[in-house]
Design a protein around this nucleic acid. Structure first.
Lengths: 259, 259
DNA sequence: TATTCAATTCCACTGAATGGAATTGGTGGA
DNA sequence: TCCACCAATTCCATTCAGTGGAATTGAATA
């Protein structure tokens, strides 16, 4: 048995991945000491695991020899994941087209723990196609339309569990937050999408994308605008629903050939 | 001591990563049995490791329960890696701009074992900005201008080693291949870039990008064209060198602030 | 040259990981 | 409905791989 809590996990592998996860935007360079501190692992353990990760090409060391960073190999995982997604490749062209046509950002995301991760996001920008690639970017699940659409689409049982986790983590702000989430759920129930402004000057609508037995995804549209939400809701909502409908059609078409 | 060959690696972690690496473009869905076959691991071992990878969010299972795929979490590694790169964020705007201005593809890559991995590639396409994101895509090191520019920039010692590996792996075609590589090296020596046509109808020029103690990267420009190489060389070469020069300047500027 | 801090290596201990074999479970066919 | 088949999982005895505290090495800084 591994340590407290979780079942039957390979400890070394778990720890190795934890080390990789310690690298995040803004934390791109870490020495063994800092990794040990952040992960709570023993120094000796970290030293050995980072050597292994170096050996298998997941980390590279800065010449100073005092620090590691993620190596290019991790990009290949991402590439394989995106190409292999049963959803993204099928609907990416529609998303792109829609971003251009409607002059909005269009994104697709899925969950990783308590965060939503963008599989793709086509950003619209007035000047040319300035495209900050944000595949892999993470946004909090409980504060975003993306995350709430995902939560809403979850089977009862898992939804409860997720909400429980969030409630615990944000115990302070939970009462208000729960109300907000429930309001979004009500929107989703009524309209098929929800709208949230989680950063000033940005509003986003999102709707779930479901495939037979696949983890729920969420599709969103966002704009930089301070217009009142109800107004935005009336324009963005129908656009999103329309796009979503066409995506679902595309997915059904792309699914038949296989199996 | 771990098994034959390599030093002092954590076996479980090594194996776990090997499992992740089994997923590649075109191999997006794997069951335990197939993973066991591809990696040479025992069935029981694979079963346990995939469970762990599932637990830490690196894999997800298809509802059929018969197969795994890479989970969205791997995208976050890629995102963190790209943002944390000491090179990419600094020169990406220049690369983009140049792709548009010159109407060519502009890419940046680094090595992973015997492959080059694109950190970014701005694709130029006549119709709008049709952008197949190829960050993470892999191309063979020995056949591409990208790879040869990288090899050329390598310290003597490591260059030898790499060439040795390639020679062994491609023993059949080695004599011709070595000649080609040496020709590219000569071009790099003389002009600062090399030009290769490794797929019919596509030609690419590449040059190394070096930073003080960082692993060499390579910058390339490519076009879909069947014009004779010498002609292309005379147009693409100067463009690339110019871009490269501006990138180096940008990098020096972006490096001073730190440290 | 001396000092300091991080990384690595050493070492004895042990329980975590292993793989062959048995079991479970789900799927398709009769 | 039941059976046969194949993959996945679990069991279990074995042992060696992984662990962490302590000592050592090594590299920067003053």
């Amino acid at each position: 048995m591994a340590r407290q809590g979780f079942s039957d996990q390979n400890r070394s592998l778990e720890r190795g991945i934890a080390i990789l996860r310690a690298f995040r935007p803004g934390v791109s360079e870490l020495g063994n000491a800092e990794i040990a501190e952040r992960t709570g692992l023993a120094k000796a353990t970290v030293s050995r695991l980072t050597q292994t990760l170096l050996g298998v090409g997941m980390l590279e060391r800065h010449p100073s020899r005092r620090s590691y960073r993620l190596a290019p190999a991790v990009l290949s995982f991402a590439h394989a994941m995106r190409l292999g997604s049963p959803i993204l490749p099928a609907i990416a062209p529609l998303m792109r087209q829609e971003a251009t046509r409607r002059r909005v950002n269009v994104g697709l995301a899925a969950a990783d723990g308590d965060m939503m991760v963008y599989l793709e996001s086509f950003r619209y920008s007035p000047r040319s196609s300035f495209r900050t690639v944000v595949s892999g970017q993470r946004v909090p699940i409980e504060l975003t339309s993306l995350g709430r659409a995902y939560l809403w689409a979850l089977p009862e049982r898992e939804q409860r569990r997720e909400l429980g986790v969030i409630a615990e983590r944000r115990s302070r702000a939970w009462p208000q937050l729960e109300a907000d989430i429930q309001a979004s759920f009500a929107e989703l129930e009524a309209d098929g999408f929800c709208i949230v402004r989680w950063q000033p000057g940005v509003a986003a609508v999102a709707a779930p994308v479901l495939l037979p037995g696949l983890a729920p995804h969420a599709l969103n549209m966002s704009v930089a605008s301070s217009e009142p939400l109800p107004r935005l809701q009336r324009t963005l909502g129908p656009w999103l629903l329309d796009l979503n409908r066409r995506c679902v059609a595309e997915l059904e078409a792309s699914l038949l050939p296989e199996n």
